[in-house]
């Protein structure tokens, strides 16, 4: 880890073209092009402006919380930072190792055993073979699945799947940690253990970007808060100030909410 982690977002906008009905069909596009309507068609394409003109600079030590109502663009912004959605306008620069905890069951296969899933995740992360035994030991121990580790995930209880998913997602230590709110699921005893592990990981990360509806988590972990509404930045500043404004403007969101 030679270089300090850094994230720079300059004037980034992301549009989602809504492909449905006729724009999904090559036939209709060809017919439209042949009749000279293509340009016209392109202009009238329905797009959702998921993010508009976002500017953001994060340096080592920054702990950013994302707040906003459902559909405000929090998850989209995390995906942009992770390099999944490439900006339609603007520029994104990311330096340093990155881990995005967006999908709790990423690459998990229900037919494979717990152990095989751990190895598969190791492959997804491009880990060298030598790192795999350590990953396996770490995840198996944390998930606490005992003998179930060698049985297919399909027969696990819901709680066990969550534990395995969490252990897998948090087994890789990044410089830049992007986190969506899903990780707060799980039973109470596990939640305590999970919080410890997550806190260790958050402390270890140089940059944290966390999206959550729970203002107490944001208050505990973040030093800076970005308030998004309809893809635009409403406020960006010290956690206490922005949170106070955000909570003052709208009733607090319920703790469990659908992901945007």
């Amino acid at each position: 880890m030679a270089l300090n982690a850094r994230v720079e977002v300059e004037n980034v906008s992301v549009w989602f073209p809504l492909y449905h009905g006729s724009s999904r069909s090559l036939k209709k596009m060809v017919v439209a092009a042949a009749s000279g309507r293509l340009a016209h068609d392109q202009q009238q394409r329905v797009v959702v402006r998921a993010l508009r003109d976002i500017n953001l600079h994060l340096e080592r030590g920054d702990r950013l919380g994302l707040v906003g109502s459902n559909g405000a663009g929090k998850t989209t912004l995390l995906r942009v930072l992770a390099g999944i959605y490439e900006p339609a306008i603007g520029r994104l620069r990311v330096q340093g190792s990155l881990n995005a905890l967006l999908d709790p069951s990423l690459g998990m296969n229900m037919e494979l055993t717990g152990r095989e899933n751990i190895l598969l995740r190791g492959l997804y992360n491009g880990l060298p073979k030598s790192a795999l035994p350590r990953l396996e030991e770490d995840v198996a121990e944390f998930a606490g699945l005992a003998d179930f580790i060698d049985l297919p995930v399909r027969i696990y209880s819901a709680g066990m799947v969550v534990r395995l998913g969490f252990a897998l997602a948090t087994a890789i230590k990044p410089q830049i940690l992007l986190m969506d709110e899903w990780f707060l699921a799980g039973d109470a005893a596990f939640l305590e253990k999970a919080r410890h592990r997550l806190e260790a990981m958050v402390r270890g990360a140089e940059i944290l970007v966390l999206s959550s509806h729970q203002s107490d988590i944001i208050r505990d972990w973040c030093t800076r808060v970005l308030w998004l509404d309809q893809g635009q930045v409403v406020a960006d500043g010290p956690a206490a100030d922005v949170l106070a404004r955000y909570l003052g403007s709208a009733p607090e969101q319920p703790a469990v909410a659908a992901l945007a």
């Binding site: 880890m1 490439e86 520029r91 994104l92 190792s97 992360n125 880990l127 890789i172 410890h196």
Partner: peptide
Amino acid sequence: MSTAVTTAAATTDLDLRAD
């Protein structure tokens, strides 16, 4: 502590721009 995170992620170096 047994919950310590041990495996390091691979480094990324992204520079994505629309134009």
